[in-house]
């Protein structure tokens, strides 16, 4: 396979990988580092890739595993999602209320444990099937479904009750587990 072929196969997945990485790592540079590591690993392991495997699932799996092993090495959780940059940016339409709700939503997403957040992101945002999501996480489909349900319930509670007072005051939130 030529270099061009390999690039043409992998590169279309880069935007989605960046988005997932950003949602996990919460910081643009950290996310791009993660994606770069993921691409390097994918390319070096390309010859031993499972034949007939789903490329997208494979890439997401590599990325998540890299994130998890880096997270295990960190003694402290990294910075939370940069809400201001995203929600106050020019790209989000709508009035002040919408922005407030989106800010709440992102803060809520940030409070989810990684295993729930990943399921929610892969299913709701990246449109992976439940089965593909189960493969990325290495868990049964039933577990995916229950994590999805728990994540959505938890986000809903967060949205309806609003962020905890301490969160409201501190612009520099840390993830709560």
């Amino acid at each position: 396979m030529s270099m061009d072929d390999l690039s043409n196969l992998i590169e279309p997945h880069v935007p989605a990988l960046r988005r997932y990485a950003w949602s996990l790592a919460g910081d643009r540079d950290a996310a791009d580092d993660l994606v770069q590591d993921c691409l390097e690993r994918a390319i070096s392991r390309w010859p031993s890739r499972h034949r007939d495997g789903n490329l997208r699932v494979w890439l997401f799996t590599i990325l998540r595993n890299l994130f998890l092993s880096a997270a295990r090495q960190r003694t402290r959780r990294g910075p939370h999602l940069p809400l201001d940059a995203l929600v106050d940016g020019p790209t989000v339409a709508g009035g002040q209320d919408d922005r407030m709700r989106m800010r709440d939503l992102m803060a809520g997403l940030d409070t989810l444990p990684e295993e729930q957040r990943s399921v929610l992101l892969l299913v709701s945002i990246e449109d992976l099937s439940y089965e593909e999501t189960a493969k990325v996480l290495g868990v049964p489909i039933g577990t995916v479904m229950s994590r999805l349900s728990r994540a959505r319930d938890r986000l809903r509670v967060h949205m309806e009750s609003g962020p905890a007072p301490s969160e409201r005051k501190a612009p520099d939130l840390r993830r709560v587990k």
Binding site: L105, M106, I125, R152
Partner: peptide, 14 residues
Amino acid sequence: QRDMLRALLKTKIE
């Protein structure tokens, strides 16, 4: 919630 998340993260992929 799903619609909102998608709208919010849509820009990230662009």
